[in-house]
């Protein structure tokens, strides 16, 4: 079940953890505490996303999803995915299992790339906070250009892969 990717990543993290222990035991203990708190914070969302993926792949006919954001739907599908990615409020690390499930159910690489990139870079929910901290001009520019970036990334991904 363990893929090569998972093995490599776990090895790297294990090395980092050992190095951290050797350098400072207390700090490492604190790091593990931070990790534990993150687990408590993210755990429910992770389960929700896994259940949604199961519902999605189990109950929704594949040709529906493929029809909306599959390769036949072209640019329109990319725009739909970019829009969904911009408005959804999901922890960024969960973007990838979601993206994988979309790919599995027949979405095009272009749409998935647009979805992942907007999900992480464009946060419509955060806009009020961003305006407060950085100003309207900065916020509009950053979100606007991120949206453009997501669309270009999507098209290039579709052409390359």
């Amino acid at each position: 079940m363990m893929s090569l990717t998972a093995i490599v990543i776990n090895l790297l993290v294990a090395v980092a953890l050992v190095a951290s222990v050797l350098k400072d035991r207390n700090k490492t203990a604190l790091a593990l505490k931070v990790a534990w708190n993150a687990l408590k914070r993210l755990g429910p969302s992770v389960l929700v996303v896994i259940i949604i993926i199961g519902l999605f792949l189990g109950f929704i006919p594949e040709d529906w999803i493929a029809g909306i954001i599959g390769s036949r739907s072209g640019i329109l599908g990319v725009l739909v995915s970019a829009f969904l990615g911009s408005i959804l409020f999901i922890p960024a690390i969960l973007a990838f299992p979601l993206g994988a499930s979309l790919l599995e159910s027949g979405a095009s690489i272009m749409s998935v790339a647009a979805f992942i990139t907007t999900l992480t870079m464009v946060g419509f929910v955060f806009i009020p906070v961003e305006i407060k901290e950085l100003g309207k001009k900065f916020t509009v520019l950053r979100n606007g250009l991120s949206l453009i970036a997501a669309l270009i990334v999507a098209v290039l991904m579709g052409l390359i892969l």
Binding site: M1, M2, S3, A6, I9, N10, V13, A16, L17, S20, K27, T28, L30, A31, L32, K33, V34, A35, W36, A38, L39, L42, V46, I50, I51, I53, G54, L57, G58, I93, P97, S101
Partner: peptide, 27 residues
């Protein structure tokens, strides 16, 4: 079946992700 597969895949990667988050937070 899908839920179980994704759960397993998450299980082998999520602890590593959490630990890396923790390490970055302190270092």
């Amino acid at each position: 079946k899908v839920t179980w597969e994704f759960f397993l895949e998450m299980l082998v990667i999520f602890p590593a992700v959490l630990i890396i988050m923790g390490l970055f937070a302190v270092w």
